[in-house]
Design a protein around this nucleic acid. Structure first.
Length: 273
DNA sequence: ATCAGCACCTGTTGGC
DNA sequence: TGCCAACAGGTGCTGA
């Protein structure tokens, strides 16, 4: 569910609340395992203090004392909800519970996940490297030349390319569709065959739509909630995603749905070439 | 090396 | 109204 704007919103929400808190206890489910196979043991977290909370691709990364980091991937339905020592535990807290960080003083960070796809990883080192992530869409390194180099000779459809986290980190199905719409490019175009102008438009469109979605605190199409359990608003501004059969807001042509890379893909046949 | 296809889970929705 | 196939914001593995 959560893509870059949703994860960014969660990380920004959690940063001031978690910073300075010390982990007293970690409890977690094991079927299927919530810590992934590359993770250091969960007890590595004990006694460490939260230094910062950041985003890397679609991971929330909690930076801890002693050079240890905890990466959280929410996959489709994961939620990270903070509860201060003063707030009561929600009634349905145990439902879909996957892991809890208990902090000294009584606050908690709860990771719940209906579909159980989400994973945690404890590691030392640089997140981008450890998590095999490509360049961030907002990274200054990603200019026209870099974009051209990354896509050169690649025959994969541009939509599929946008979803590959090892090349570009953070873009998911919603924002890939939206960015292509604003760039005026059809999803199945071969990414290596885009013109320089199209690449330029795509990069601008990506940043614009991601920035706007962050401003609106993400899209809640179904499950997504922020670090306080509230919905985002950007679902009300989507141009193509989930709008199959409805008229394009710009030209009136019905929005098309096709399957690309096993994912539902939406575009306007009138506006995208 | 790449890539399509499936697997992982549970819940919701839309068509018949 | 009821049933059930299709679908869901993601990624990892397998085998061609």
């Amino acid at each position: 569910m959560p893509e870059l704007p949703e994860v960014e919103t969660i990380a920004r929400d959690l940063a001031p609340r978690l910073s300075g808190l010390r982990i007293a206890k970690v409890s977690h489910a094991d079927h299927p395992p919530v810590f992934d196979r590359h993770s250091l043991p969960p007890r590595t977290l004990l006694g460490r203090t939260v230094i910062a909370v950041k985003r890397a691709g679609k991971f929330v990364v909690i930076e801890l004392s002693g050079g240890v980091r905890l990466a959280v991937h929410l996959r489709m339905t994961g939620r990270l909800i903070f509860r201060s020592a003063e707030e009561p535990r929600p009634h349905d807290a145990a439902r879909y519970l996957r892991a809890t960080l208990h902090f000294r003083g009584g606050a908690e960070l709860v990771f719940s996940d209906v579909r159980k796809f989400g994973r945690l990883r404890v590691f030392r080192g640089v997140a981008q490297t450890e998590l095999l992530l490509g360049v961030d869409p907002f990274d200054r390194q990603l200019d026209a030349a870099r974009f051209a180099e990354l896509t050169r000779k690649r025959t994969t459809p541009v939509k599929v390319w946008l979803l590959d986290q090892r090349r570009l980190a953070g873009v998911g199905n919603i924002y890939a569709c939206e960015a292509l719409y604003y760039a005026g490019v059809r999803p199945k175009r071969r990414v290596g065959k885009l013109t320089a102008l199209e690449r330029h438009k795509l990069l601008l469109a990506l940043r614009k739509v991601l920035r706007k979605a962050i401003y609106h605190r993400g899209s809640s199409v179904d499950d997504y909630v922020d670090g306080a359990g509230k919905s985002g608003r950007f679902q009300n501004h989507l141009a193509v995603y989930g709008r199959a059969g409805k008229p394009c807001r710009r030209c009136g042509t019905p929005i098309n749905r096709m399957v690309l890379g096993q994912r539902g893909t939406f575009y306007c046949p009138g506006c995208q070439r």
